[in-house]
Every structure is written in structure tokens, then in C-alpha cells.
């Protein structure tokens, strides 16, 4: 018993020391070129506005696929280590919340670690169904009902998968995507394009910036003295 507590205390201290000495990779994502308009946006907006509840909550049409700021800042880009990933990193234990608010999924793109809890919330006064259709074996498909303000639905995905889709068939404009990562070294860029990958030990890495429809860019990064900065520029795909 005594030995166990010593081991546990030692492990906790080791974790704290490792976290304290671990650095972070920060940077910004921008998009060059003009992103294509979101197809079917008008039709989706019409459907949304025709809905008795959601129509009142609508904030108007938005391009959710390419969320670009005035200076080309690109949100919803998953940034992650893809090479030389540190082993024995602590798994992320804090659940991630994906909310259904005003008949939209917020956020549109989420990233979690394998085994980490994803809580799907319904903040609306309307009912939703949460239809999950993974393409990777082991991640179970499911379709669950969620009444207005009902308890969160909890999901855990055992295998890595890029852009696992969630949708609501009650409100068929509602889509969201979850990137499931096998390690905790990732981030999703904010609306201003900024991102921070935390707890990365010093070392050399390959970092990938991945956008659902904007492709990906990989760069070499060295974390030195607990810090590294890298910016990515993705290119807007040419319209047809």
C-alpha cells in the first residue's frame, strides 16, 4: 500500500515536471486565394428559415466550410504532429463538448483523442437526432434521439479517424465533423487562424495543417526551449 502511494506520487510528480518542461507550438493559418462559395448554402438557408423553431434562431447564411477572416485567417484547421510523436504522453481526459445551438453544431470541426469523451449537447428548445457514420472499423455508427435540453450524449471513439461526420436528420443542414487523433498533440485553429499545440517536449517534428476541403500542408518544426512557432498557408481550391 505504501509502495503504491510512493509510485503514484512519483508518477504524478513526473507528469507535472514533464508538463512544466514541455513546450508549445503556436502559429497561424491563412488561406491564399478566394475560397469557393459554399454550394447549396441558399437551399440550406431556405430550409432553416422554413423551420418553425430554427427559422427564428437563424443568424443568416454562413460559409461553414471555409471560415475565413478579413486578412485570410483560416479557422477550423486541424494542426497536429505527424512524425516523431512523443511516446508515453498523458491521454487527454477532459471531455470535449459539441453543442447544438440555434440548430447548428458548434463548433463545426472538433478534434479529440482516441478514448477521450465527446459530449454532444442540445441547447435548443427543439429535438435533434445525432447520426454518426464513421468510416473506420471499430468506431461504431449510431443514431440517437435527443429531446430539447436533454442530457448530453456521450461518445468515445477507439480508433483514429479524420473528419468523422455527425448529422441531424431532423434538420438536414446540420453537419459537424470530428477528427479523432491517436495522440494528444493537436489543435484546431480559431476564427483568427491561431492555434496552440500544448505540452510538446523539445525536439524535431513534422506538423501538419489539415483542412476538410482545403487540403493539407506539412512543415518541419523544432521545439527549442519550450517554444516553436510555425505558420501555414493553405491555398483555396479552384472553383470548378
Amino acid at each position: 500500500m505504501k509502495l503504491n502511494s510512493i509510485v503514484a506520487t512519483g508518477a504524478a510528480w513526473a507528469g507535472i515536471i514533464a508538463a512544466a518542461s514541455a513546450g508549445e507550438i503556436t502559429g497561424k493559418i491563412t488561406l491564399s486565394g478566394t475560397p469557393p462559395p459554399e454550394p447549396q448554402l441558399e437551399a440550406k438557408t431556405q430550409m432553416l428559415q422554413a423551420d418553425l423553431y430554427c427559422g427564428k434562431k437563424s443568424s443568416g447564411p454562413q460559409n461553414r466550410v471555409f471560415q475565413v477572416g478579413a486578412g485570410g485567417e483560416l479557422g477550423q484547421v486541424v494542426v497536429r504532429l505527424v512524425d516523431n510523436v512523443p511516446a508515453n504522453a498523458s491521454a487527454l481526459s477532459e471531455p470535449v463538448v459539441l453543442d447544438q445551438k440555434n440548430c447548428e453544431y458548434i463548433p463545426y470541426v472538433t478534434a479529440i483523442q482516441t478514448g477521450q469523451k465527446l459530449l454532444v449537447r442540445n441547447s435548443d428548445e427543439a429535438l435533434h437526432n445525432v447520426n454518426i457514420a464513421p468510416r473506420v472499423d471499430g468506431n461504431k455508427p449510431s443514431n440517437k434521439a435527443q429531446m430539447a435540453k436533454a442530457a448530453d450524449i456521450e461518445y468515445v471513439f477507439p480508433n483514429a479517424e479524420d473528419f468523422l461526420p455527425l448529422k441531424c436528420d431532423v434538420h438536414r443542414w446540420m453537419f459537424a465533423y470530428v477528427v479523432v487523433q491517436p495522440h494528444p498533440f493537436f489543435a484546431v485553429s480559431a476564427a483568427d487562424g491561431s492555434f496552440t499545440i500544448k505540452n510538446v517536449p523539445d525536439g524535431k517534428y513534422k506538423v501538419e495543417a489539415l483542412h476538410r476541403r482545403g487540403g493539407k500542408v506539412v512543415k518541419d518544426v523544432e521545439v527549442k526551449g519550450g517554444k516553436a512557432q510555425v505558420n501555414f498557408e493553405l491555398t483555396a481550391p479552384a472553383a470548378k
Binding site: N129, K144, D169
Partner: peptide, 14 residues
């Protein structure tokens, strides 16, 4: 209308 899965349970409804 792509509504086939809008009611996820059966024979009950929600």
C-alpha cells in the same frame, strides 16, 4: 428529404 433516420428508434418514436 433525407429524413429516413430522423426518428432513430422503432417501434417507438423518440
Amino acid at each position: 428529404k433525407e429524413a429516413g433516420m430522423a426518428v432513430p428508434d422503432w417501434p417507438t418514436t423518440y
